[in-house]
Design a protein around this nucleic acid. Structure first.
Length: 459
RNA sequence: GCACCCGUAGCUCAGCUGGAUAGAGCAUCAGUUUGCGGUACUGAGGGUCAUAGGUUCGACUCCUAUCGGGUGCACCA
């Protein structure tokens, strides 16, 4: 089971979330290719204080009517404004605001009808946004967990754990002493009886083990939570779950802004939709303008979408996950050199060859004719492909595959310049080259697919 | 204070379990088409691999210390 994405409802989906999705989706595809029985899952953050704050602002201070589209994103703005308003309030007003937020939180915890309905409605707005984004990205989950569904189970686990003596009470709260593992004290339930992130993670893990029979569990979560997962795994081990030996937290470094960390709280984020719009616009004006008259609108749109997905995912995956990405919009609009656009362009050029040669691709060729250094390099890459995919999975590093595919595309471009199929000296050489390039295209297609990319046939 | 991650060309990054003259892209400069899509290809310049020690026949890679950037460390997620 590979858990990834985990967005919070009532917050905007930003480019930092995209790194997680690209990584998790690619790993899922790679493990499936390598023969594993994989379940890709999402875990939606649909409970917590951030929602109370968002609803508080929505009820008490919002004057706008919700937009028709991207209402989840709009809620994210309300959340940022709520945080701002709460921070800026002073004196009696501040206390009043905090009480109001706290009141909403309590009503939600108590499953109050009116508040629950409002929560469900707004949660759905966010989910609609997420589904739209995943669909555009061609990312599919086999199952979706919600924090709200493991909340109660988590509380129960912790309370029973305290009765059994596995957990202990401290300063009114319940936690577990992990000093023997050098992991300090791990808080599991607040002194007011409310659950924490950790509470739910225990219940979620239990559900993964017991209901899904998960043997190996991968969590794709930001590196800032490394300690948290060490604590979660140590706690599960104390609880007697031997499967914890096969639990792995795959950390990745943050996507930063030049001025620092992105924060939904502070509202200084680059939204995913912003990146998507700018990339599509850039592709349409730079790459597809020449086809505007002779292609259908549908093909123009689909092609722009495919190239944009390639640019975004490749950009997220070609760099090692433990290295920060400092986000700069102009870097993501580049379509030359080591980019996703270059890879799909290489693919398109190979396919273009096939369309111009009337000969059928046949395996009945004289392989010994492929003697050019550039042809040999391609043969070598074809041979290494499966090994690279295997290692990329076992080392949790789609970046290895991404880099291999870039080199592969580069090798193709070189061969393309030196070993023409159309103008091959002999019929036999043409047949051999046609097969070689056909195999290169098929392998590149498969490799891109493992990165979550579907190249267009022409662009 | 303690812990973890990062520090390689002007910029963004590769460098597989230590192995020969450290590789790409962008940027700069010079070239390539009467031959399959020039969003491409060829070539040039540019690096005391943060610093100082140590281990080793051999270190970008392993160990120690220091400096710089990031992140985390009990009621956020």
């Amino acid at each position: 089971m590979i858990e990834y994405s985990q967005p919070n409802t009532h917050k905007g989906f930003h480019v930092g979330h995209m790194r997680n999705v690209a990584l998790g989706d690619s790993l899922t595809r790679i493990y499936k290719y390598n023969g594993y029985d994989v379940v890709g899952v999402n875990y939606i953050g649909d409970v917590g204080a951030h929602i109370a704050k968002c609803l508080w602002y929505f009820r008490n201070h919002n004057t706008e009517t919700p937009p028709q589209h991207f209402r989840g994103e709009w809620l994210g703005e309300l959340y940022s404004q709520a945080v701002k308003k709460l921070d800026e309030a002073e004196g009696e007003e501040k206390i009043k605001f905090q009480q109001e937020v706290s009141h909403i939180l309590q009503k939600l915890e108590a499953k109050d009808k009116a508040f629950t309905e409002e929560w469900e409605m707004t949660r759905e707005w966010s989910m609609q946004d997420f589904h739209e984004i995943y669909e555009w990205l061609d990312v599919n989950f086999d199952h979706i967990f919600y924090e709200s569904e493991v909340d109660e189970a988590g509380r129960k686990i912790v309370i029973e754990g305290e009765e059994k003596g596995t957990f202990e009470r401290s300063e009114g709260a319940i936690g577990i002493n992990l000093e023997a593992e050098d992991l300090g004290f791990f808080m599991l339930l607040k002194s007011d009886g409310n659950t924490l992130y950790a509470t739910k993670d225990l219940a979620l893990a239990q559900r993964k083990f017991d209901k899904f029979g998960v043997k190996r569990s991968i969590y794709v979560v930001g590196a800032e939570q490394t300690l948290h997962f060490k604590q979660v795994f140590a706690t599960l081990k104390r609880m007697g779950y031997s499967q914890v030996e096969q639990c792995f937290h795959l950390p990745y470094a943050l996507v930063m802004l030049p001025e620092g960390k992105m924060s939904s709280r502070a509202g200084n984020v680059i939204l995913f939709s912003q990146l998507r719009n700018e990339i599509i616009e850039s592709i349409q004006s730079a790459h597809l303008a020449e086809h505007r008259l002779d292609w259908s609108q549908q093909e123009l749109d689909e092609t722009a979408q495919k190239i944009a997905v390639a640019a975004i995912k490749y950009g997220m995956l070609n760099q090692d996950s433990n290295k920060q990405i400092v986000f700069s919009m102009k870097d993501w609009l580049i379509s030359e050199g080591d980019t996703g656009t270059y890879l799909v362009y290489a693919y398109v050029r190979i396919r273009s060859i096939g369309r111009q040669i009337s000969r059928e691709v046949s395996t009945d060729v004289d392989y010994s004719l492929l003697t050019h250094a550039n042809e040999k390099k391609l043969l070598r890459q074809l041979l290494d492909f499966n090994r690279t995919v295997l290692i990329s999975g076992e080392q949790y590093r789609p970046s290895l595959l991404a880099r291999m595919l870039y080199e592969f595309s580069k090798d193709f471009s070189r061969a393309y310049n030196t070993c023409s199929v159309k103008h091959a000296e002999t019929e036999k050489l043409q047949a051999a080259r046609l097969l070689l390039f056909h195999c290169v295209a098929e392998t590149l297609l498969q490799g891109l697919h493992l990165l979550g990319i579907t190249p267009p046939e022409r662009m």
